[in-house]
């Protein structure tokens, strides 16, 4: 089994589970298929020698964000019965629009490939924690600090939004 075959297998599984996210009627099943998709994308990262991002993807996406989605789903008690039904016209229109988008994307990127063709460097260690950390704390230190401000803003905003409004005692 060559590496190419592994990559194609992983890619097929990724597309399949991503399709199941959209197709499954039950919201909880959608979340679980999305977790599977994130694990498969992490496997793709490992295949591309980006170990740090693979681990961060599992911890942040599959571990934190998806658990948040699952909590909200269970908090709102959504199940198959409460799932809104899309009309067949909108479904058809969405699929046609998505197909056109895919066609245009692939056609545009196919021509662009000729320009970017260049010698592939031999096995690089860019994806390791050491190299990424060095980049993050030297070249990209300002965006890194700004992201903490973004997190504070998101945290305060989420608490403010989700808090129950005070009942007026009068």
């Amino acid at each position: 089994m060559t590496l190419e075959m592994i990559a194609i297998l992983l890619g097929g599984l990724t597309i399949g589970s991503a399709l199941m996210v959209v197709l499954s009627k039950h919201p909880v099943r959608s979340v679980l298929y999305l977790v599977v998709t994130f694990f498969l994308i992490s496997a793709n990262y490992i295949l591309m020698n980006a170990q740090f991002l693979a681990i961060v993807n599992i911890i942040v996406y599959a571990g934190a964000i998806m658990v948040l989605f699952l909590f909200v789903l269970m908090l709102l008690n959504l199940n198959k019965d409460s799932e809104p039904i899309t009309s067949i016209g909108i479904k058809l229109a969405g699929i046609i629009a998505g197909g056109v988008l895919l066609t245009v994307l692939l056609a545009a990127l196919k021509d662009g490939l000729v320009i970017t063709q260049q010698a592939v460097e031999s096995a690089n260690n860019n994806g390791l924690v050491e190299n990424l950390g060095e980049l993050l704390f030297t070249k990209y230190v300002l965006p890194f600090e700004m992201s903490s401000v973004l997190f504070i803003a998101a945290m305060v905003g989420a608490v403010m939004l989700a808090k129950r409004e005070k009942q007026i005692i009068d």
Binding site: T14, A18, V21, V22, I90, G94, A97, G98
Partner: peptide, 18 residues
């Protein structure tokens, strides 16, 4: 590209906000 298109179709087709 395929993953992005699947996500875009999902945004257009599904009606559950989550």
């Amino acid at each position: 590209s395929v993953l992005f298109a699947i996500g875009a179709v999902g945004v257009m087709v599904r009606r559950n906000a989550i």
